[in-house]
């Protein structure tokens, strides 16, 4: 190929790529603008109208909280049981998710599955659990089981099994198969091979994902409370529905929730750092 031809081909390719890039960008911009326009139309308040009042509500809460600062610790104490319930929901769901997801990931790992034919079945089950939004399961279970923390726990557990199962599967793919082969050669059964040959290899990463999941599950459990599953979310919903003059309780719940999320995030991030770098 001559220099000229090469040059021509290069610029043609460049032009083509630039055109695709510009077109993609233009389409994306168009979709964003049109999307915001539609969303704005279907909203009960408009974007620019709301922008002016953006800080009204937080200002109300802050003003009232500072006026009744002395009452805030008492209100926090009052909401503490609800917070503990939310944390318990998240913790149990994370525990169930880790055990269930771990088992599923081992059953779905091509290398160590005891029933290799069933691998796709377990994979699809994990996909389904992951795709199922927690609110769906929670609301249906509230109808059957009544109120209380159990529906939310089950809902978040199902999602956690799916989500952790997938992440654990990715960890399992990098595990060394040799210990398993060694254990097989001395006659170890499947559960022994997994417990002694695989778990020690994957445990740090599994634990790290488990901690991350706990953070996510606290948020999920708070939000489920808001749609009726109990815990701090429910408390928050009640607190803000009382309106002006009673925002001290809402302020207390906000403080509790934000503090909890920050503390758990920081602790889990520190623990995860130790797990991945140390160990």
């Amino acid at each position: 190929m001559t220099n000229e031809a090469l040059r021509g081909a290069y610029f043609r390719e460049l032009r083509r790529r630039r055109l695709t890039g510009a077109l993609t960008l233009a389409l994306l911009t168009l979709a964003m603008v049109a999307g915001f326009w539609i969303a704005d139309m279907r909203n009960s308040g408009t974007f620019f109208g709301g922008l002016r009042h953006l800080f009204d509500f937080p200002a109300d809460i802050l003003a009232e909280a500072s006026r009744k600062a002395a009452k805030i610790p008492g209100e926090c104490l009052h909401s503490l049981p609800a917070l503990i319930e939310t944390l318990n929901i998240a913790a149990v769901a994370t525990l169930v998710g880790t055990l269930g997801g771990g088992l599923m990931s081992l059953l779905a790992a091509p290398g160590f599955a005891p029933f290799p034919r069933a691998v796709p079945v377990f994979r699809r089950m994990m996909d389904l659990g992951r795709a199922l939004p927690e609110i769906v399961v929670a609301l249906v279970l509230i109808y059957v089981l009544g109120g209380g923390p159990v529906p939310a726990t089950i809902a978040i557990s199902i999602h956690s099994i799916g989500a952790l199962g997938k992440l654990f599967s990715e960890v399992n793919e990098n595990a060394d198969l040799k210990p398993v082969e060694g254990l097989t050669s001395v006659g170890a059964v499947w559960s022994q091979r997994m417990a002694v040959g695989v778990l020690p290899q994957v445990a740090p990463n599994w634990l790290s994902y488990m901690l991350l999941r706990f953070e996510i599950n606290i948020r999920a459990s708070a939000i489920l409370g808001f749609v009726g599953a109990g815990g701090i979310g429910y408390e928050l919903k009640n607190a803000i529905s009382w309106g002006k003059g009673r925002y001290d309780e809402a302020a207390a719940v906000f403080i509790l929730l934000i503090l909890t999320i920050i503390v758990v995030d920081q602790t889990s991030s520190a623990l995860r750092n130790r797990l991945t770098t140390g160990a």
Binding site: G35, A39, T46, G50, I261
Partner: peptide
Amino acid sequence: LRGVDGLIWTILLARAFGLGPLTGA
């Protein structure tokens, strides 16, 4: 932004922008 959880943002924004998909977005 991350620490003040999506739930709280949703509640705060719903007060200013009303109900609807824009608030959710």
